[in-house]
Amino acid sequence: MTIPTAPTRRVEHVMGLPISLALRGRNAEGPAADIAWRAVLYSLRAADHVFSTYRADSVVSRLNRGEIALDDAPTEVHEVLAIAERARRATDGAFSVWRDGTLDPSGVVKGWAVQRASAALRDLPDTDVCLAAGGDLVAWSAHEPWRIGIEDPRDPTGLIATVPVTDGAVASSGTAHRGTHLVDARTGAAPAGIAGVTVLAASLTDADVDATAAYALGPDALTWLRRRVGRTGLVVWADGTTATF
């Protein structure tokens, strides 16, 4: 097995998130990579226009103001809501994109949007791809696996674990960078006892939703994650103890 050269990296900020792309291989640089990268960013911006709760003109904002009905929303809104509904049922309501009648699909949209955007990079022949958006990522490699570091949620300047990824997605949930704002939708309170959750899955849509949902479950996160098929990962408890699954 050959040792890959250092990846070529690109960074842009979309949706208020840093988007990082690392490429290795034949098309790591050049026009094909540039076009694919632009397509990724275009796809993410398009998602932002539909789903952002910060943009007054987004579909979600117009839904929340009652200017359009759910039935009139584009297909992708229904796709995201279906994902959210599955997560809500799977967590007995701890995960929800609805609060007091207001839709905030952020817990689903990021993973879904990045997974969708990564499709533009599948066309790059002989190229290993690692696409990250604000701490969640999609990666595949025909050579050595990507080496992914998992931030310590109690000390984000350091790593708590590493994991090799050949083809899959990694998502983390916690409060390290945003303060306490994720809540258990059943109680409205911040989950207790948990510092962070990292989930690996085949798709970032699944990894992101499961990481967010598990975090909302607080002390029940690990039990819940162990019942999920096709997931591995790490739970960091508030006292610093850890468990892999």
């Binding site: 998130l17 983390s172 960078h177």
Partner: peptide
């Protein structure tokens, strides 16, 4: 490592991040 996964950070927090 090649890339980092962590709790969602915003562009503001990005500069300080790994």
């Amino acid at each position: 490592i090649d890339m980092v996964s962590g709790a969602t950070y915003t562009s503001e927090g990005y500069v300080a991040s790994l």
